[in-house]
């Protein structure tokens, strides 16, 4: 009974909500000719399908890590992913051990391992495969939540600057010139110093520096659409400014915005590693590829070299980012053939 009760928390409801919204949006989009055509083009592109499957696998792993429940009142909630590893009898070892090894590494008198580890164990004795899979969750939150913060901000500012012009445009252009003239890494450092560490704070810092590019893009596109016939026709019919912006201009901006967000997602995932290196990244204890790669700096100097930590984290990161990049390019080509890269 208590297990069921502990399942009903906000942190469990959130991923379900996100997935449901996503699927709902996709089914709605499929009914529109532009998107139906785009989906058809992506379906013909084998590389895009493979990338999409890879991204879906990462998202699924992230989902299993976000569902957590308590066995009884006193224990902390344990996620589904951790339960899978517990069920497979993956235990914590004493210290480092190589993949498939039977004894620990780096101790004067190696100890026999309790179990078998596909990708070895890290310095604290945790299974590297488990740590790597836990990184999916953090990466997806950083990419997804930051995009979720950026989009409304950029749309609101960009569309009002482009549509109304004059004073609103001047003010918004001033704001984004100010933000754009600070190198984003410096701004992120300053923000994270005052906000403190944490995954959500990283998203806020990345969002506050990242909205500028999208805002500039949206402003430019809105300027283009503002004087088109269909907008003038809507105005002549007596539509209000808000109605024109939300019902007429916004749907025309969506392709550009979605392409830009998909292509930006991979950059956000990569930023996490850099912030982790600088010591203002994800706090220890949360799965993070950045922290694993950062830790490898010292491990490479050891003898024997501890390479499995670095390799698994960077491969996991590399495959996700590569799939995102390929899929983003395919999506751009499918939605807007004029923007094709070649």
């Amino acid at each position: 009974m208590y297990v069921l009760k502990s399942l009903l928390t906000i942190s469990n409801a959130l991923p379900v909500l996100v997935a449901a919204t996503f699927i709902f949006a996709l089914t709605r989009m499929k009914k529109q000719p532009l998107w139906a055509e785009a989906f058809r083009r992506i379906g013909r592109n084998k590389l895009a399908i493979v990338s999409l499957v890879v991204i879906a696998i990462y998202a699924l792993i992230a989902l299993t890590d976000s569902f957590a429940w308590q066995d009884n009142k006193d224990k902390p909630p344990v996620s589904l992913l951790m339960r899978v590893f517990a069920a497979a009898h993956v235990q914590r070892e004493r210290t480092y051990s190589a993949p498939f090894a039977h004894y620990t590494t780096g101790e004067p008198h190696p100890h026999k391992l309790k179990g078998w580890h596909l990708l070895g164990t890290d310095g604290a004795g945790f299974d590297v495969l488990m740590q790597t899979l836990r990184g999916c969750h953090t990466a997806m939150i950083i990419g997804g939540f930051t995009s979720f913060l950026i989009t409304p901000l950029a749309l609101l500012f960009g569309m009002s600057a482009g549509y109304y012009g004059k004073l609103p445009d001047d003010i918004i252009q001033y704001i984004f010139t100010v933000v754009a003239s600070v190198p984003s890494i410096l701004l992120q450092i300053a923000l994270l110093l005052v906000l403190g560490p944490g995954v959500i704070n990283i998203c806020i810092a990345l969002g506050l520096t990242g909205w500028v590019g999208l805002c500039r893009l949206v402003r430019g596109e809105t300027l283009k659409h503002r004087d088109r016939e269909y907008v003038r026709a809507a105005k002549a019919l007596g539509a209000s400014n808000t109605r024109i912006l939300t019902r007429h201009i916004l749907p025309n901006l969506l392709p550009v915005v979605i392409i830009s967000i998909t292509l930006g997602f991979s950059g956000l995932v990569l930023s996490e590693t850099i912030l982790s290196y600088l010591g203002i990244g994800v706090p220890a204890g949360t799965g993070s590829w950045g922290n694993m790669i950062d830790g490898a700096r010292l491990e490479l100097a050891r003898d024997p070299v501890i390479w499995w930590n670095l390799t698994s984290a960077s491969m996991a990161l590399f495959i996700l980012v590569l799939a995102l990049n390929f899929f983003g390019d395919a999506l751009r080509d499918a939605i807007d053939p004029r923007l094709r890269s070649n």
Binding site: L270, T273, G290, A296, L310, S314, V321, L322, N325, N342
Partner: peptide, 21 residues
């Protein structure tokens, strides 16, 4: 051409940190 552009996408997917290390 296509090999080089694919290589570029692959290289873009590697984190700066790994290049340094």
């Amino acid at each position: 051409d296509s090999a080089a552009t694919t290589l570029c996408v692959i290289m873009m997917s590697i984190t700066y940190l790994l290049y340094i290390i």
